[in-house]
Design a protein around this nucleic acid. Structure first.
Lengths: 216, 216
DNA sequence: GAGGAAACATACTACCGGGTATGTTGTCAA
DNA sequence: TTGACAACATACCCGGTAGTATGTTTCCTC
């Protein structure tokens, strides 16, 4: 569907708000972030934000949704990879970690959204849209779970409880959300080096042994 | 120093508040927790809390401090362990993970306290006491860093950047803070099984190879 | 070019939560 | 016994924030 000039402007405004909101939520967390904060960081006012988003929770949910879409997009090229599952996992995990680094503000919102839902800190109406987002997040997790299960069947990984292992693995892969912050003059190669080390840690943690054997 | 009956009562009240606050902060986070929430969960009122604590930030800091004291106490028996560093790490890591599980509310406050400090979300006065707590937390991290560095020197661990590896390792060891919640009828043996799997993941992630060789 | 709607800004309301000021009751010490 | 203080509860103030109601300007359309 082609957008008219008017619609294009509106979409741009929504995108600007989304981006600014992601940064604010990342900096201060959902509760401590006010709509005025978001508006101020855009050089606009509260009215502008409420013109494009019905509520703070709606805005938050949209950041969540876009963040998850980014994740799916990042691992999409490797979804149908053939060959050993351990190698596929490595490719997916690397893409995932890089995504955590590159789109950190959005991913922190996804993170906080998960814990918010788990604590039940949502109104009944928002409960629906949140449940859908949670499902999306769970599906994403299951993709990885299937791959590491296959890798275990193929003898490349060793672990006990799949559910527990999935949790620990994601915590490791998501760790950049908590210690990464961009350095001045940092290149994308630097980020890839970081991501590679995270993946290596998780790979061995899952029981993978011969790095060269399943080169990515 | 022996406490009089009066002082004992006061200390008990402070301990009650501390415990209730840890649970509230754990459930809702610092910002979303009101002093009324804490008081209500004690069947008391705001006045009672403010009689024993000067401010919300003070209360939070105290939970943080006690949480860190718990951590130091948990790994204390293994601080002066002789033998291979990898085995010492295993003992310390196991105690640490169990501590995360057993005192989760306090440890989540420690966690949030660290990110709060990193975001600079404190008033100048509280900045001092927080800086001290951060130092305590950093020292605690350095204990582990030294041990894994020695284990690497001894050829039991393999990793690149020590600082980065310490971060990833702690994320893994702290992961129960995010996925653990007590089950009905759960025994301490169950918790030890969980902790063992987390330690096993991290141990291998650090490059440890032969579990039997460095039995804990 | 006029009408209308989109895209904002401004002004306002209602409420909540940190902190304080002020009561009230029990307890201990002299 | 009495007075002084600890240990609370109650009442209140005030700043901040989600959300709304109401302007005002710009731009598209007919």
């Amino acid at each position: 569907m082609a957008l008219g000039a008017r619609e294009q402007v509106a979409e741009n405004a929504r995108a600007d708000i989304l981006h600014a909101a992601a940064i604010c939520f990342n900096d201060r967390g959902y509760v401590a972030t006010s709509i005025d904060d978001v508006a101020r960081s855009l050089g606009a006012t509260k009215g502008m934000v409420y013109h494009h988003y019905r509520s703070k929770a709606d805005l938050f949910a949209d950041v969540f949704r876009v963040g998850m879409e980014m994740n799916y997009a990042a691992i999409a090229p490797f979804r149908a990879m053939s060959g050993r599952a351990a190698a596929q996992w490595r490719a997916m995990a690397f893409a995932h970690v890089l995504q955590m680094i590159r789109t950190k503000p959005f991913q922190r919102v996804v993170w906080e959204g998960v814990s918010m839902y788990l604590r039940g800190a949502t109104t009944p109406e928002q409960r629906d849209v949140f449940a859908e987002l949670q499902q999306s997040r769970r599906d994403y997790g299951n993709i990885f779970r299937d791959v590491i299960a296959r890798a275990r069947d193929e003898g490349d990984f060793i672990f006990d409880d799949p559910g527990l292992t999935e949790q620990i693995m994601f915590l490791t892969l998501n760790s950049p959300l908590f210690w990464y912050s961009p350095r001045a003059g940092e290149t994308d190669a630097d980020r890839e080096i970081l991501a590679e080390q995270v993946v290596a840690f998780a790979y061995r943690g899952l029981g993978g042994v011969d790095t060269k054997g399943v080169a990515r």
